[in-house]
Design a protein around this nucleic acid. Structure first.
Lengths: 217, 217
DNA sequence: ATTTGTGAACGCATTCACAGCT
DNA sequence: AGCTGTGAATGCGTTCACAAAT
């Protein structure tokens, strides 16, 4: 099963939430595709990986499909989340509404700075020292770790998470840590994204790509 | 040219910076691949899109290749950046070291909250009202916009950026705005990433994927 | 001997197009 | 008539393998 498919399922889920909020109760793949700029075949193929949720000639029932996707993504169950690094980014993520929603619960932040330990984020999420990681992970049934520490600290922090039993990691540091088999790490590399935009700007300034005007005389 | 290639170029650049810091001055694609867990053919193919930077039988000169990639990505030139939304995330991004580095300069944040206008981020980046967007973009030669506002405000904010002449946008809100041709928008959807990890956890708990133990008797 | 640069082969993901069902 | 589910076709990205170069 492709990771691209699962990411699209998240998108579809959000679309279905929008539709439900609008009071729509039935939707076809074509309708959804048009409304949200998706591809209808792809919607159907993605869903086909997990079952048959539609009715031929009719379409999909919004609330039912929504529940199905929630179940597929494991959002029918709440996962505890810890955030490693209580800097600006860690704090922002701790209070990010999207991370404190169905399926997830931010349990705590961890930092090595003694000045931060014992304080909380703006929304009141506690900041602990690293020595408390194992006990918090055990007690709060934490399955997910978010890493927002400087590059040089990443591998050590990830190793600590893996030792504590966390097998899913979202890493924001600009260095891809090595993780053992059976552990998944998704890297969100903000600098790479920004540099990709810089390339776009640079190449659209540079006339190299479009050497001539319109070909039509 | 694939966006995947340009994102990998950012990675290669970071690797080369590491190598330079270690005092390495020549490197082969195989060496780089092993050290940073990449694929040597892919490195060569990616580079081949932009020229011939190596010497057969020898490899690449670190400082030269580094400069070449900086030029390709447009980092030999500083782009002004504005951040829309001075909430937790916007503020964290404004002070993020990776965004205040070679090739980029965070110029200002913008917010509609009168209580924030006139204040600054922790690192001193000014927060303006939306009415000042056009003048700031004009005066500071801003080419890049980062969007960190709630979903319902995204499209309006993006339209304002486009009107002001910003043609490259990094969007953190959970809604993909429509942008005109010639404008590029990269969406970083944090909730999608987290839900993708939730799926991984869910499917590795669920024995459906691996119905049996080891096949070897 | 070693490594680049690249055409060819491969594999994966998307899109098409239609049979099957309501 | 209309829409799903899916095999077939296409397109894209990665990997292989080797000729060209030092």
């Amino acid at each position: 099963m492709s990771e691209l498919t699962t990411k699209r399922l998240s998108l579809y889920l959000r679309c279905l939430e929008d539709l439900a909020a609008l009071g729509v109760d039935k939707v076809s793949s074509r309708e959804m595709a048009e409304r949200f700029q998706l591809n209808s075949s792809q919607i159907r193929k993605d869903l086909a990986c997990f079952g048959e949720f539609g009715v031929r000639g009719v379409g999909y029932e919004v609330s039912q499909l929504r529940r199905e996707i929630e179940t597929i993504l494991g959002l029918d169950r709440t996962s505890g989340v810890v955030i490693m690094g209580a800097g600006n980014l860690g704090n922002a993520l701790a209070d990010y509404p999207g991370f404190n929603s169905r399926g997830f619960e931010i349990v705590a932040l961890f930092d090595s700075d003694p000045g931060k330990i014992g304080t909380t984020s703006k929304q009141g999420k506690p900041i602990h020292g690293l020595d408390e990681l194992d006990s918090v992970v055990d007690e709060a049934d934490v399955e997910l770790g978010i890493v927002a520490v400087p590059a040089e600290a990443v591998q050590g922090v990830v190793d600590r998470l893996v030792d504590a039993g966390v097998r899913a990691i979202l890493n924001f540091a600009p260095l891809r840590p090595v993780v053992p088999d059976g552990t998944r790490c998704i890297n969100v590399d903000l600098k790479v994204e920004l540099e990709s935009l810089s390339f776009f700007l640079s190449s659209s300034r540079d006339p190299a790509d479009e050497p001539e005007g319109p070909v039509l005389a």
